[in-house]
Computed example of a mutant assay.
Amino acid sequence: MANIKGATAQKRMYVGTHGNLSKEVLVVPLSTVADGGVVDVIEVPVGVNFVGMSIINEALGAGVKLTLTVDGKALVTDKDCAGAGNSVEAFKPVYTENKTYLTITVTGGEATGEVVLVPEYQSIGY
């Protein structure tokens, strides 16, 4: 199954002075994304170090969970989004070694709402 291009997939990720902490606000409609669907959220350049993620979600449907990945590495795994909620997710920093996408994989059922992602990252460079 091909990845779905999210509404924010063509947005440019801010890459400022090396080492400064940056955030993006990404509003991602997930209505009718089927179980197993993968959404490309935003293109990520080489040299970005992800250090955290805030997630604000509507009730996405019974059993729906989200997994967020970048460059083949999981940032957040099986986040329960059946009910509305918000959270700040901490994880070991993840560095992008390739030009890639931040992706959402939907599992557990068809998603029926919207999620807002606020990734925290540093632009480190090559």
Rank of each mutant, 00 (worst) to 15 (best):
Met1Arg: 06
Ala2Gly: 12
Asn3Gly: 13
Ile4Val: 13
Ile4Phe: 13
Lys5Glu: 14
Lys5Asp: 15
Gly6Cys: 03
Gly6Lys: 09
Ala7Val: 06
Ala7Phe: 08
Ala9Asp: 15
Ala9Glu: 08
Gln10Ile: 11
Gln10Trp: 00
Gln10Gly: 05
Lys11Asn: 13
Arg12Tyr: 04
Met13Tyr: 01
Met13Ile: 12
Val15Ser: 10
Val15Tyr: 04
Gly16Val: 03
Thr17Val: 13
Thr17Met: 08
His18Leu: 01
Gly19Glu: 10
Asn20Leu: 10
Ser22His: 12
Ser22Tyr: 08
Lys23Ile: 11
Glu24His: 10
Val25Gly: 12
Val25Asp: 11
Leu26Gln: 11
Leu26Val: 11
Leu26Ser: 06
Val27Lys: 14
Val27Gly: 06
Val28Gln: 05
Val28Thr: 10
Pro29His: 04
Pro29Lys: 11
Pro29Met: 04
Pro29Val: 04
Leu30His: 05
Ser31Cys: 04
Thr32Glu: 13
Thr32Cys: 06
Val33Met: 02
Val33Gln: 01
Ala34Gln: 05
Ala34Phe: 11
Ala34Glu: 07
Val39Thr: 02
Glu43Pro: 06
Glu43Thr: 11
Glu43Met: 13
Glu43Trp: 04
Val44Asn: 05
Val44Leu: 02
Pro45Glu: 03
Val46Met: 07
Gly47Asp: 05
Gly47Leu: 05
Phe50Ile: 06
Gly52Ser: 11
Gly52Val: 04
Met53Glu: 14
Ser54Ile: 10
Ile56Tyr: 00
Ile56His: 00
Glu58Gln: 15
Ala59Phe: 08
Leu60His: 05
Gly61Trp: 01
Gly63Met: 09
Gly63Glu: 08
Gly63Gln: 09
Gly63Asn: 13
Gly63Asp: 08
Val64Thr: 07
Val64Ile: 12
Val64Lys: 15
Leu66Thr: 04
Leu66Ile: 10
Leu68Phe: 12
Thr69Ala: 14
Thr69Lys: 14
Thr69Leu: 07
Val70Trp: 00
Asp71Pro: 12
Asp71Gly: 14
Lys73Trp: 02
Asp78Leu: 11
Lys79Met: 09
Lys79His: 13
Cys81Asp: 01
Cys81Met: 10
Ala82Asp: 12
Gly83Trp: 01
Gly85Leu: 06
Ser87Gly: 14
Ser87Trp: 06
Val88Gly: 15
Glu89Lys: 06
Glu89Arg: 11
Thr96Gly: 07
Thr96Gln: 12
Glu97Asp: 14
Glu97Trp: 10
Tyr101Ser: 07
Leu102Phe: 07
Ile104His: 03
Thr105Cys: 06
Thr105Arg: 09
Val106His: 05
Thr107Asp: 04
Thr107Ala: 15
Thr107Tyr: 00
Gly108Ser: 06
Gly108Cys: 09
Gly108Met: 04
Gly108Thr: 07
Gly109Arg: 01
Gly109Pro: 01
Glu110Ser: 05
Ala111Ile: 02
Ala111Lys: 04
Thr112Asn: 15
Gly113Trp: 07
Val115Trp: 14
Val115Thr: 13
Val116Tyr: 09
Val116Trp: 09
Leu117Asp: 03
Pro119Gln: 09
Glu120Ser: 14
Tyr121Pro: 03
Gln122Asp: 13
Ser123Trp: 09
Ser123Arg: 03
Ser123Lys: 02
Gly125Pro: 10
